[in-house]
Design a binder for these strands. Structure first.
Length: 800
RNA sequence: GCGGAGGUGGCGGAAUUGGCAGACGCGCAGGUCUCAGAAGCCUGUGCCGCGAGGUAUGAGGGUUCAACUCCCUCCCUCCGCACCA
């Protein structure tokens, strides 16, 4: 007999809905647990990645509820963004219509999975009841100087016809369409995330329950490095070239200076020099090279001499100034001091162009020998200073400090900290996003939209042609507005916000999704936040998480929340693969969750996806594996037909053991072994039979994993109220203590026998038992016993 | 190049943190039931060997009574960052 999931699942979901079981109530008096998964972009259909992400979270949420927590488990949609705009163009419709249709479809599929969401808290970022608060937050940021406008060279994707954040440029290409990104000069809105760089870095220490990998990625992204800014004066004139280095210990080995081709001083340096034309040609050539080519590491380092000379301030040596493609304008000061003996790039460049070298650090124990001629590569490791005047003989690490201090005293250098993190460009020349609430007045300049005029709504029926510029700029009634200050005719900002803005605070909105006095109700946020468990893909390890942390700190500075970090625990789930590859349309290897649900039901899908691999690792989809999960549920289903009056003690003990194991495993997100534990218990029940109590507890343990299934069995067992609201079963520690233990017997560390003895048998008795073992005796014949190692209740190792 | 994670049967994966390697599942083989099949149920299943036994956690070495686990050398895979000065 097979269980009829089709009837069961639908019926159970309706019952949960009617009873309002998943409603989060801040007044309950219970300890809170905020379980959140990264909300989806509403593409219209869920994929296996969603199923996995949300199933993992759902087990955690349901388990915590059974453990007596008041659980907040919300769901919503990250609904702004380019795909909707593209789809609208393609299908000749409006992004809002398309998006809300997708949300509907997606929500239906999510509901079919039986997730324990409090749907009353649903939010969509494209709803003006949501995005008006984006505008509110933006105005607050503007007031505090966090949001500002500047003209800058921005990344421009010619295919998407929009600007991209640095973070959206991957290896020189657009993160979405991989088209090579160009540079374009535009007036853009930025958020000064760099003002928070120290806190964003330092507070990573608080995040003890985040994967180390994510912490490392964040830390690298912020990219703090300490070094010295050294002032190289030009030999002729007063011009000073500031140079940043982290290896000031090598300063005495600097034999030339290199500027980035884009460096603003270059034109001045070459003016009137014989090299002028050659340099200009080189700059022209480099500027045409795409970033991809320029940054691929095996490319030969090219450069030209500028004809100018600079003075090394530590020894007054005159050294040539070059420009080269391997020096980047966007890092440091766009200029370097080159030390070919101790930097591999400089080494290769110097060899190529016959530039001079000087060794200033030697490895410890190799003080005498080897000259520059013998070097085949730069020596970049630690060592002892040589050719460095008063610093000779110091370890280079010590010299690094001493030289920096000395240079600062002499006024020829400055100890500085350099950060890789850049301000966040949020302007987008797109329609389907939050309008930036700013007005341009010819008299008053840039004027913020007054708070009482929010939201600035997106106009309906904007023209979509797919051709350049923002569609908002073409809607006259949107653009035309009176200046809030002087009432003269003015025009609105027509750019919209990057969608990462929307997702940087949605977790706060979930605490009070209908609140209309502010982005969130401070009281509710103080109760629910921070998020206790956050679950999502590793692809958001840097951007989304960094921005959310930034917003949280901003809200704290506004006095709206009392904490620094939004997410206490983070789990990044692995991807779902088919035949070793990511499921994707182009590969044609997609397994549609909906088809699996129709064939086996949501519970089987949930069970398989949890059982097949631990949450963090990649999961290989296996059609036969899912049948195994279905088989297991049927196996459990049949137990109800053969219940005994009283189960054997072995079964009862096994049950208590399972309660302990499964509970601990769920707490540690080891769902695969938790389910294995349940399978073991079921195997024992098939051997020895279960009674009503054992079976009931098994059902409750299954509840977080396969809730519809467990709920149905629970009712069939004669229970009136829902299984999901039952307390998690308790185990009896007394019953976990084994009466007899199996002790393994080893000779020289090799397993030779096992004996079953009463627990806590003394060492002496154990030895006696072991030495009289029939299987052991032959191994001891003619071999003197050197020593006997006894681990109580575990093993006896006889060394002969 | 730098940083991180990892390498265990035919496959997905376990191993209480130094104490029976391979839990649990998939697959495979055999049995049972059946007129037959499917489904169930039971048994077996790392490799070599009829057997006693030997051997095995990427390769090699070391520490230890005992190593998947700790240390050293090397190889490979995946991920992130990357001419970052």
């Amino acid at each position: 007999m097979q269980y009829n999931f089709k009837d069961i699942e639908e019926k159970r979901r309706r019952a949960w809905q009617e009873k309002g079981i998943f409603k989060a109530d801040p007044q309950s008096g219970k300890p809170k647990f905020y379980c959140l998964e990264m909300f989806p972009y509403p593409s219209g259909k869920i994929h296996m990645g969603h199923v996995r992400n949300y199933t993992i979270a759902d087990v955690a949420a349901r388990f915590k509820a059974m453990r007596g927590f008041e659980v907040l488990h919300p769901m919503g949609f990250d609904a702004f963004g380019q795909p909707a705009e593209n789809a609208a163009i393609k299908n000749n419709t409006q992004p809002s219509i398309w998006t809300y249709k997708c949300i509907d479809g997606m929500k239906r599929e999510l509901e079919k999975m039986g997730f324990s969401y409090d749907w009353e808290r649903e939010i969509s970022t494209c709803d003006d009841t949501y995005y008006r608060w984006n505008q509110w937050i933006f105005l607050k940021m503007f007031e505090r100087g966090i949001a500002y406008k500047k003209a800058s060279s921005v990344n421009w994707c010619p295919s998407c016809r929009t600007t991209l954040a640095n973070e959206e440029v991957i290896e020189g290409g657009c993160w979405r369409c991989h088209t090579v990104v160009e540079q374009k000069e535009l007036e853009q809105w930025f958020l000064k995330i760099t003002e928070y760089k120290e806190r964003l870095l330092d507070d990573l220490d608080q995040l003890r329950h985040w994967p180390g990998k994510v912490l490392t990625m964040q830390s690298n992204w912020i990219g703090k490095s300490r070094g010295v800014e050294i002032f190289f004066r030009l030999k002729d004139g007063d011009t000073v070239i500031p140079v940043f280095t982290t290896r000031v210990d090598t300063i005495f080995g600097a034999t030339y200076v290199v500027l980035a081709p884009e460096h603003p001083l270059v034109k001045k340096l070459i003016k009137g020099k014989p090299q002028e034309n050659e340099v200009l040609r080189f700059i022209e050539k480099v500027s045409k090279e795409s970033k991809v080519v320029r940054s691929s590491s095996d490319v030969k380092k090219e450069g030209v001499f500028t004809g100018a000379y600079a003075v090394n301030p530590v020894n007054n040596e005159t050294i040539p100034v070059w420009i080269a493609d391997y020096v980047l304008m966007e890092y440091g000061s766009g200029a370097i001091m080159a030390v070919p003996t101790h930097d591999q790039r400089d080494f290769l460049f110097a060899k190529e162009h016959g530039l001079s070298m000087r060794i200033v650090i030697r490895p410890v124990g190799h003080m005498s020998s080897a000259g520059v001629q013998e070097m085949t590569e730069a020596y970049e490791d630690d060592g002892i200073q040589v050719n460095s005047r008063q610093f000779d003989g110091l370890s280079n690490q010590e010299a690094k400090k001493k030289i920096a201090e000395w240079m600062e005293q002499e006024g020829i250098g400055k100890i500085v900290t350099h950060w890789r993190l850049r301000d966040w460009l949020i302007s987008r020349q797109r329609y389907w996003g939050t309008p930036i609430p700013m007005i341009y007045c010819s008299k008053c300049g840039v004027v913020p939209v007054p708070y009482e005029d929010l939201p600035v709504k997106l106009p309906e029926n904007a023209p979509f042609t797919g051709e350049g510029g923002s569609p908002l700029g073409k809607v006259g009634e949107f653009v035309k507005v009176d200046c809030p200050k002087c009432k003269a005719p003015a025009r609105r900002e027509t750019d919209t916000m990057a969608t990462f803005f929307d997702s940087s605070w949605y977790f706060l909105r979930f605490c009070s999704p209908k609140f209309d006095g502010a982005p969130f109700d401070a009281k509710e946020a103080a109760y629910w936040m921070p998020v206790d468990q956050y679950i999502g893909g590793i692809e958001h390890a840097i951007l989304h998480l960094l921005y959310s942390r930034f917003f949280t700190k901003f809200f704290k500075d506004l006095g709206m929340i009392p904490f620094d970090e939004p997410f206490l625990r983070l789990l990044t789930q692995g991807m779902v693969l088919k035949d070793g590859e990511v499921m994707s349309k182009s590969r044609g290897n997609i397994v549609d969750p909906d088809s699996i649900i129709s064939k086996y039901g949501a519970d089987t899908l949930r069970l398989f996806i949890l059982f097949a691999a631990p949450p963090e690792t990649e999961l290989e989809w296996d059609d036969r594996g899912i049948e195994g999960s279905f088989k297991f549920l049927n196996r459990v289903w049949r137990i109800q037909d053969n219940l005994k009056d009283k189960a054997d003690e072995t079964v009862v003990r096994a049950m208590h053991k399972a309660i302990k194991k499964v509970g601990e495993d769920i707490d540690n997100f080891k769902f695969n072994t938790a389910i294995a534990g349940l399978m073991e218990l079921v195997n024992i029940i098939y051997q020895s039979g279960a009674d009503k109590e054992v079976f009931s507890k098994l059902i409750l343990m299954l509840c977080p994993f396969v809730p519809h299934f467990a709920e149905e069995l629970w009712e069939l067992m004669g229970n009136k109220d829902s299984a999901c609201v039952q307390p998690w079963p308790a185990f009896d520690p007394v019953l976990l203590i084994e009466e007899n233990v199996t002790v393994i017997v080893q000779i020289n560390g090799k397993l030779r026998s096992k004996v079953i003895v009463p627990a806590e048998t003394s060492e002496e008795t154990l030895k006696n038992i072991v030495f009289s073992e029939e299987k052991i005796k032959p191994w001891l014949q003619g071999r003197p016993v050197k020593s006997v190692i006894v681990v109580p209740n575990k093993l006896v190792n006889i060394v002969v």
